[in-house]
Design a protein around this nucleic acid. Structure first.
Lengths: 268, 268
DNA sequence: CGCACAGTTGATATAGTTCAAGGGCTGTGG
DNA sequence: CCACAGCCCTTGAACTATATCAACTGTGCG
């Protein structure tokens, strides 16, 4: 892929200097598989200098003006909406290759907070430039449509989870979702490290941290998982899926990335 | 506005033949106030024959391929996601001037069901045509961005409501939201007819219909509202807002329409 | 070392569900 | 026109899932 760029003319080659996507480890999760190689460079030209965000720092906060969407290159984020009296609903956790920052896009003002759960690096993609280029580049239009559609799908799955599932089912869905997304990134689907506290999990799933803790313990007693602090091992994937089974797989997210494999899963 | 069209040349005038927006009663809620008159016609050309949907019928269902988004001209809809075992989470109720059908847009396959709660009429807006025209017409691009952004905002507010609010707060939010949307449409903000059953309200708010009923009764006893079947009268708007007050106004929706007034509210 | 934070676990409380009964409205068919 | 069936809604009583409060453990950090 990278060698291919060598044949381009100067002007374009210059763009490729700034083209981090080619080197990027998460490129395959971030850019859709249907995107023609020849046009991947277009996206790269939209990317500003990559930005580092320290653990605990805000990537953006509610009320900020909307400039960019962000592709997570490395690290981990939580995104949340806050009620005026300080109740925090975490709308999602985001890992490498996923997109953050669709909130507030039409209005120009953020209504979510995005906070790094560990030292992270993001690619800021200028929305203005994205819109401008989209006029000419069909693959960019498709890219925008697809990724923003995924954000909405994710949000609707959350509504189903929050409105209809029991605590057990929510936790099962949560673990299976993580498992699936990690697997898609080449990590183990059965052993992983949680990046967030029990409280944050609870805040995401509409539960208290005590309930999260108890249900983890209960899952462990039942032999479904092993828990040691934040280290999780899924021992019985089948039975874990059965807990959710009655509710249906379509509750579990499929991440915010846009490779076609996950699109098929979601569609099914 | 309509007279203005008389000055246009034949080709354009022909488009205006199909331009229902000009006659449409809900035009001002449907089309954004920033949209220049000269370009409103563009949207009209995207609109197929208006479509009638009988009470109880599906506008579309999960699994359908995505062809159009729909502006509600008259009537009332519920949109829901279903779990595989039949649990229904209603993601929203939609009235005249609001848009339905952003679900599944990137993938091409619906994951929601849209059902008419009363005999209704919708404007189907072809997504293919919308995308094609958007390439040239900036106001259409902005229109798409804004309306889809609103869908996401709505979904995130729902997550906060479902994850963090008590039953009381949810019902208060629900009533205030309805009140506000009706007011924006020129109806009374303090007296209205619910179009949905208690069960559907419950399914939207993550409660059982008994709880909805009980809380309505309780609100009535407290002098906040009067309830007679589906007829609701808000007697004490201030105290009703106070119930939600601690949680914050930003929980209550601002509908899916895109007139700038509501955009300001949402931003605040 | 000691303090702050994350997590576990137990005891108790409670909001909301579930089950159950009854009433009122609406439409239908005899 | 009445009777009956099928919703929709209300209300009560009992139950239960989850929250709340509280005590305790381990762990990392200044």
């Amino acid at each position: 892929m990278l060698t291919k760029t060598k044949f381009y003319a100067n002007a374009i080659e210059h763009q490729y200097e700034r083209f981090r996507c080619g080197h990027c480890k998460v490129r395959e999760h971030c850019l859709p598989s249907w995107m023609p190689d020849s046009e991947e460079g277009r996206i790269a030209t939209l990317i500003d200098t990559e930005r580092k965000v320290r653990r605990g720092d805000y990537l953006y906060r509610s009320g900020d003006s909307v400039q960019d969407i962000f592709a997570v290159m490395s690290g981990y984020f939580k995104v949340s909406v806050m009620s005026e009296d300080g109740r925090e609903q975490i709308t999602g956790f985001y890992m490498a290759g996923e997109f953050i920052g669709y909130d507030g896009i039409g209005v120009g003002i953020r209504f979510c907070n995005a906070i790094a759960l560990e030292d992270s690096v993001v690619c800021p993609i200028s929305i203005d430039n994205l819109n401008t280029q989209s006029i000419r580049v069909s693959s960019l239009r498709r890219f925008v449509t697809e990724t923003s559609g995924q954000q909405l799908a994710r949000a609707h799955r959350m509504a189903l989870l929050l409105g209809k599932l029991s605590a057990e089912e929510r936790l099962a869905a949560f673990l299976l979702d993580l498992s699936q997304r990690l697997q898609a990134r080449g990590y183990s689907s059965t052993e992983f490290h949680l990046r967030m506290t029990r409280e944050e999990i609870g805040s995401h799933l509409g539960l208290t941290f005590e309930t999260v803790s108890r249900i983890f313990s209960q899952f462990q007693e039942r032999g479904l998982i092993r828990v040691q602090k934040r280290y999780i091992q899924i021992c019985d994937l089948v039975r874990l899926k059965m807990i959710l089974g009655r509710a249906g797989q379509n509750v579990i997210s499929v991440s915010a990335d846009c490779d076609s494999a996950s699109l098929q899963v979601r569609a099914g």
